Amino acid sequence: MSRISTPEPQLAPEASQPTLNAIKAKLGSVPNFFRVLSNSPAVIGAHAGLNQGLSKALDVKTRERIALAVAAVNGCEYCNAAHTFTGYTFSKLSREEIERARQGTSEEPKAAAAVAFARKVAETRGKVSNADIDTVRAVGFTDAQVIEIVAVVAENFFTNLINNVAATDVDFPDI
């Protein structure tokens, strides 16, 4: 059971309502994570802004792979379930590729470099080596994309921390 309240969307603070309504329109329902965030209009708004901004960074499959790797590093049950579902259902990652992402790899060389770097960023809290950066650049990532990988790691750290603290009830189906 969640340690932080998970209000029904209509009972969330009024200032959280526009974001919750947008999520419901996009997904058809409001997952528990967003219901937990809705306790604070400032936090749900900040998350929405970060998520919207980073939706323009990298491709969706790479972002999902990073989310899975970071959830594995941080032991986030909720995010692991959520990104397994969204990675499989919307990004069309295979079950095998989802498992590879959790381990920080991929069968695609460029994706493997990105997710390995992301996992290293998560594990070392950003204290990567020059060789780590050189490796991700060697497969064609620009400095802008290296920063985007780091930002996607940070976004997922944020969601992992919220869900680990809240012990958010998982509401995504097993894949």
Results as ranks from 00 to 15, higher is better:
Met1Leu: 12
Ser2Phe: 09
Arg3Thr: 14
Ile4Arg: 09
Ser5Ile: 12
Thr6Phe: 03
Pro7Cys: 01
Glu8Ser: 14
Gln10Leu: 12
Ala12Arg: 08
Pro13Thr: 00
Thr19Cys: 02
Ala22Asn: 03
Lys24Pro: 05
Leu27Ala: 09
Ser29Gly: 13
Ser29Arg: 15
Val30Met: 02
Asn32Gly: 09
Phe33Pro: 07
Arg35Met: 02
Val36Asp: 01
Asn39Val: 01
Ser40Gln: 01
Ser40Asn: 00
Pro41Val: 01
Pro41Gln: 03
Pro41Asp: 00
Ile44Ser: 03
Ala48His: 07
Ala48Glu: 05
Leu50Phe: 04
Asn51Gly: 13
Ser55Phe: 05
Ser55Gly: 08
Ser55Lys: 10
Lys56Phe: 15
Lys56Glu: 15
Leu58Thr: 03
Val60Asp: 14
Arg63Thr: 09
Arg65Gly: 14
Ile66His: 03
Ala67Asn: 06
Ala69Gly: 04
Ala69Ile: 07
Ala69Glu: 04
Ala72Asp: 11
Gly75Gln: 04
Tyr78Asn: 04
Tyr78Trp: 04
Tyr78Ile: 05
Ala81Leu: 09
Ala82Trp: 02
Phe85Lys: 12
Phe85His: 14
Phe85Leu: 12
Thr86His: 15
Thr86Asp: 11
Gly87Phe: 07
Thr89Arg: 15
Lys92Pro: 12
Ser94Gly: 13
Ser94Asp: 09
Ser94Ile: 11
Ser94His: 09
Arg95Gly: 13
Ile98Glu: 02
Arg102Thr: 04
Arg102Glu: 05
Thr105Cys: 05
Thr105Pro: 08
Thr105Gly: 11
Ser106Gly: 05
Glu107Asn: 15
Glu108Met: 13
Ala111His: 14
Ala114Tyr: 06
Phe117Cys: 11
Ala118Leu: 09
Ala122Val: 06
Ala122Arg: 03
Glu123Arg: 02
Ser129Phe: 06
Ser129Ile: 06
Ser129Lys: 03
Asn130Ala: 15
Asp132Tyr: 03
Ile133Asn: 07
Val136Met: 04
Gly140Asp: 07
Thr142Val: 09
Asp143Thr: 12
Ala144Leu: 15
Val150Ser: 07
Val150Leu: 06
Val150Gly: 04
Val150Met: 08
Ala151Gly: 07
Ala151Met: 13
Val153Tyr: 00
Asn156Gln: 02
Phe157Thr: 06
Phe157Arg: 00
Thr159Asn: 09
Leu161Glu: 08
Leu161His: 08
Ile162Phe: 02
Ala166Asn: 01
Ala167Tyr: 14
Thr168Arg: 00
Phe172Lys: 09
Phe172Ile: 10
Asp174Thr: 15
